[in-house]
């Protein structure tokens, strides 16, 4: 659980940093996306399969842990109070399940374009080369307020999942002690928030550009051009 979690914790940081290139304009993100898509197939598919395997093992161990835990705890007809358990720690299974659903949705939405096949047609010119227009796809995708809101909520759950998960990781690997405990807990909470703010900045900026006078992204231009 801790090791597969660590792999995904590293991945989300790079994913988030990559996303921030949206704010550097269309060429930056499109160049980056083109670079990722034209990686040697062995590297690209190797990476994808590695992450998929990590996610698969993470989910499988979570299910087997939960099963064993359910068996150890018989139905409790009485009252049970909590003293110090955090909300994040109590809701790991719930936040994890919703995140799994989100990840599947996200891949079908922005990677394979299965949900809205119209995304497949977004192309742009980059240094005289026809490349996929990720910049417009993101703006077009998040201009749907329902989808943007779902992304923002999912990222809130990711923040909670990480704030417990990252500090747990140190505990499960046996790295925590009296001296490092506070540092790890603060690091985990901070990490969760950094990831949250980084990821949410894109859908939030699209919504703000669309519905307020702020003009971070040219939402109307993109919508006019693509419709």
């Amino acid at each position: 659980m801790a090791i597969t979690g660590l792999i995904m914790v590293g991945f989300v940081l790079f994913h988030m940093l990559g996303n921030l290139q949206m704010f550097q304009g269309p060429d930056a993100i499109n160049t980056y996306a083109h670079f990722l898509k034209t990686l040697p197939p062995a590297v690209m598919w190797g990476g994808r399969l590695f992450l998929l395997a990590a996610a698969g093992v993470h989910v499988a161990t979570a299910i087997s842990l939960t099963r064993e835990n359910c068996k150890a705890c018989p139905t409790d007809p009485g009252v049970k109070e909590r003293v110090q358990a955090t909300l994040s720690s109590k809701t790991m299974a719930l936040s994890g399940s919703i995140l799994l659903f989100f990840i599947v949705f996200h891949i079908l939405h922005f990677t394979t374009h299965t949900i809205f096949p119209v995304y497949k047609t977004f192309m742009t010119d980059l240094d005289g080369q026809q490349v996929y227009d990720v910049y417009s796809m993101v703006i077009y995708g998040f201009s749907n307020a329902w989808i943007a809101t779902f992304y923002i909520i999912a990222m809130g759950l990711l923040c909670m999942h990480l704030s417990h998960g990252v500090s747990s990781m140190f505990q499960s690997l046996g790295l925590r002690n009296n001296y490092w405990r506070k540092t790890f807990d603060i690091f985990a909470a901070l990490y969760g928030w950094v990831i949250f703010i980084g990821f949410v900045s894109n859908p939030a900026a699209v919504l703000l550009s669309e519905y307020t006078s702020l003009n971070i992204f040219p939402v109307q231009d993109v919508l006019l051009r693509l419709s």
């Binding site: 835990n69 705890c73 003293v83 955090t86 109590k90 790991m92 925590r176």
Partner: peptide, 20 residues
């Protein structure tokens, strides 16, 4: 069951055994 780093054990322990 398994430990999910929930911390309630430490909170109720009459001898204050630490999660460390």
């Amino acid at each position: 069951g398994n430990c999910t780093n929930y911390g309630e054990c430490e909170a109720v322990c009459p001898k204050e055994i630490s999660l460390d």
